[in-house]
Design a protein around this nucleic acid. Structure first.
Lengths: 349, 349
DNA sequence: TTGTAGGCGTTATCAG
DNA sequence: CTGATAACGCCTACAA
């Protein structure tokens, strides 16, 4: 019985081997580990493959070897700039390797994440990158079954599934709020949207910093579950100033909210930073351009993606792990929106 | 000879078929075309699959069927917000289908594009999405060899490779500049960065509109090949006003440049829109929030991604093409940054 | 360093 | 509508 599929001059490993005068398995080895071949055969296979224009059939390879050369990547949003940078790091770094990226969007939903994880599970990926540390127990169970290296990205936390690279969002937020406190601000508001787990932990850092200074006040906290957008920053700021007119600084959960807050101040003729200081989070490029330039917390997002792929490929290639936890830290980038406060009641310096 | 690979309770189609009391091929049909089965068998296979937690092996499927269920997507940038929206449309829409997305980043390089296309070629994708209409002849040759439906996105133009969805960037820019002319602006500058093919065509639209009004002046054009960023918008604006101090409006190649230009005006105390009108391109969310709110050209980016997948899946599923060219158009969103000009020399209306 | 043998899980084909 | 049979192209395991 003949198969009728048009084989369109398909070149298989067998053809390459025949032309090179070696057995198929030798040719196969050439593509996976050239160094295992004698130099003469290596060269013969190489030129034969080139001559025939051989392209390996990845499906056959995956079927026979029980593993694909796919790295699954789960992120919660495609729209958020923050992930664009991480993705760039991931794609740039994986491009050199033999692995390809399979991206999926959880839309900030744990259920979606579980579902996607199950799909990935069926594809036997060589490695996996997941966002954050808040996977459900079910999701963690699926991952443990996947039998491949896994890197959690964006933040660090206790009990990593396997490897983890990121920063402590609560520490970063704590430091940002300390910066405001040290510069003399007293009534520091919090503008939060989306309030995903990382946002929650930024809020935790904010609260802890203020509690330590005995300045925490629930009325200063304005949050919503809606996705972060620039316009929303304006709405949140409006809310805050109507509730606490004498607020003197705001810590925004991210830069989009901060920009929206700045615009709202411009609209309301609230002088920034004289009447209100603003601090954002992530340090997107526009923060330096704004008028006034906006203080923010710089996170190493590109680096996070790069590092995740490096850790993963090292593990997939069987190299001993150098480190399972990589804290990429953060940096408070101080700009004009949060100068030392000129407190009328303070002595002149 | 036994294989030693731990099969870890792997559930195959055979197991499902056995439990359902049908032949493997019948079970196989269930997953591809349930309607070809009698209702009773359909139900038996379904419950058996569910009970066993069966997940199809995509590699085996691809090997046996000679086609992968992968849609290759080539975009020039991961950082640019514009593509994030398109990607969201692509991922959202493909999620329901049986196709998965393979994303690759050309980094605005034709050579990268060719290289990636060759890689995709080897993977026999079920469909392909490429950005723009400026593929090299070599790239076009590779694509023709791929023997799968192809959709070009972002813009429409002559000689589509297969299908195409987008808008005319020159028409859109022309309309934006016409808007300024009609509102009485005389010296309309152009701020351009990156200057990729779509940027070039926006410039073409700008130039044509001004030439038609006999107002084109090369000194009003400030461009750079550097990637677009908000800070760059400020630099370009500085350049423009130092060259043509009495410029009364700027058309910016995109919204990032427009925002940077606005910030620079704030810094230089140039009143917007009284002294200078600003128009951007893409209508990102922040345009409506800015102070003043910025006029822009809305493009249907999410819809572009959605439509591309729809056209592709229809073609891949063998449906007759409804349309090979889909012009999604654009809309000038007029905001406070480009009001009718109060020309001192004009009569009062 | 190289080769032999057999199977990975699915689907195409054709016959009922 | 259903089933028997034979691939799909490559790789693992083992032996030499």
């Amino acid at each position: 019985m003949e198969r009728k599929l048009p084989q369109s001059g398909k070149v298989r490993l067998t053809e390459v081997a025949k032309l090179a005068g070696v057995s198929p398995i030798t040719a196969s080895r050439f593509f996976r580990n050239p160094n295992a071949l004698s130099i003469s055969k290596r060269e013969r296979v190489e030129s034969a493959a080139r001559e025939l224009g051989y392209v390996p059939n990845l499906a056959a390879r995956a079927l026979a070897s029980h593993r694909s050369e796919v790295i699954g990547v789960l992120i919660p949003s495609l729209t958020n700039n923050v992930f664009a940078d991480v993705l760039r790091g991931i794609y740039d770094t994986s491009e050199g390797s033999r692995y390809s990226i399979q991206l999926a969007n959880t839309r900030y939903s744990n259920l979606q994440e579980e579902r996607l994880l199950r799909i990935f599970h069926g594809q036997k990926p060589a490695g996996l990158i997941v966002t954050g540390i808040d996977q459900t127990p079910e999701a963690r169970a699926v991952m443990r079954n996947m039998n491949c290296p896994i890197v959690q990205i964006m933040e660090i936390g206790p009990e990593p599934i396997d490897m983890i690279v990121g920063l402590s969002h609560s520490d970063a937020a704590f430091a940002a709020v300390r910066h405001l406190l040290e510069r003399g601000y007293k009534r520091i508001g919090f503008l939060g949207a989306r309030m995903d787990p990382r946002g929650q932990r930024r809020f935790d850092g904010y609260r802890e910093a203020l509690k330590a200074a005995d300045s925490f006040d629930q009325r200063l906290v304005v949050t919503t579950l809606s996705p972060s957008t620039v316009p929303l920053g304006g709405i949140l700021l409006s809310d805050l100033v109507s509730r606490v007119p004498n607020v003197d600084a705001v810590f925004c959960i991210n830069d989009d909210i901060a920009l929206g807050a700045l615009f709202e101040c411009q609209r309301r003729q609230i002088a920034v930073p004289e009447q209100l200081a603003i601090v954002g989070f992530n340090d997107l490029e526009f923060m330096a351009s704004a008028v006034p330039a906006l203080t923010s917390v710089r996170t190493n997002r590109y680096e996070m993606g790069r590092k995740a792929i490096e850790m993963l490929t090292a593990a997939m290639d069987g190299k001993p792990p150098q480190e399972r936890v990589s804290d990429l830290g953060f940096e408070i980038i101080v700009r004009a929106s949060s100068p030392p406060r000129r407190d009328p009641s303070a002595t002149h310096v």
